[in-house]
Simulated assay, not measured.
Amino acid sequence: MSALDGLLLERVRGLWETVSGVPVTFPPPGSPAAIVTAPGSGLCPPAWVGIVSLGRSALVTAPDAAVARTLRQALSSVPDDALTCPDTVRSVLPVAEVLGPATLAYVTEGTFRPVPDEGDVEHLSVDDPAVSAFLEAAGPTDAEESGLAEVTSPVFVLRTRSGPPLLAAAGYRRWPCRTAHLCVLTAPERRGQGLARRVASAAVAHALTAGLLPQWRARPAASRRVARALGFREVGSQLSVRPELAHRPTGVTEGT
């Protein structure tokens, strides 16, 4: 690992330690995962278990102390690089629902590969009617997955030449530790045409100019390809699971 990679990884670990909501640090690479009780964890939905693996080191948040104890028993034999594999987690822990895994990728000024500006990417407000109509047309699943309705940056968009409908849009939401969480959405019928890369490039450039670290969290292979084309480097992964609490081991009770 280069010195630059090491600095990036250190910054990203600091981000996820902060997002966990409790005082915790990633353990040394190759050590058992850090498993902590964090009811307000930002690694996962409320009452879920959040797992983030970065550079052979993992952090796990549990909604309460009883689940944390269960996790320490169940995950003790699971290698860090397998903690974000749903099948592996299911093999040692009763799980009711899973979100992910998603890759975590980041880009710096030195690694960013921008798309040449052709002058047709517009800047809109997130509450612009065109953005609202675009999200509605995409449907609730794609709109929610993109996170575009929650951006705090301008929304960078491409339109059709003959009318107002949007073809693609991107922006970012400011996260802790001066991080910009990228949100990108392309109209379903226009995917695979390079539009996502163009609007995302504009959003990334805006974030870097503001001194932020762009973050790309993705599950679909197509989204990961867009990120790699822009110079993002995958440094880890994230998984959220909702444990099947009815199957807790005998003798495990709530408490601290």
Rank of each mutant, 00 (worst) to 15 (best):
T209Q: 14
G211S: 05
P27M: 11
L93P: 03
R11H: 10
L239A: 08
R13F: 14
S162K: 10
L239K: 06
G21A: 12
S31K: 14
P79L: 12
G21K: 05
F26M: 13
S76A: 14
A105M: 08
L4G: 03
G231E: 05
S91N: 10
P39I: 04
A169K: 05
V89E: 01
R11A: 14
V121S: 00
S162D: 14
G119W: 08
T250C: 12
L245F: 07
A218K: 00
S125L: 14
V107Q: 01
V36R: 07
L135W: 04
P63H: 04
L9C: 09
P243R: 08
S146N: 06
P116T: 04
G14C: 12
P79V: 11
A149D: 11
S240V: 02
T111K: 05
R217N: 08
P39E: 11
G139F: 12
V95N: 09
L166G: 03
A130R: 10
D87W: 04
G194D: 00
H123D: 12
A33E: 02
A34E: 02
V12N: 08
V107C: 01
T25W: 14
H123A: 15
S91W: 06
T141V: 15
L43R: 00
G194A: 06
D5T: 05
S41H: 02
T179V: 05
P164Y: 07
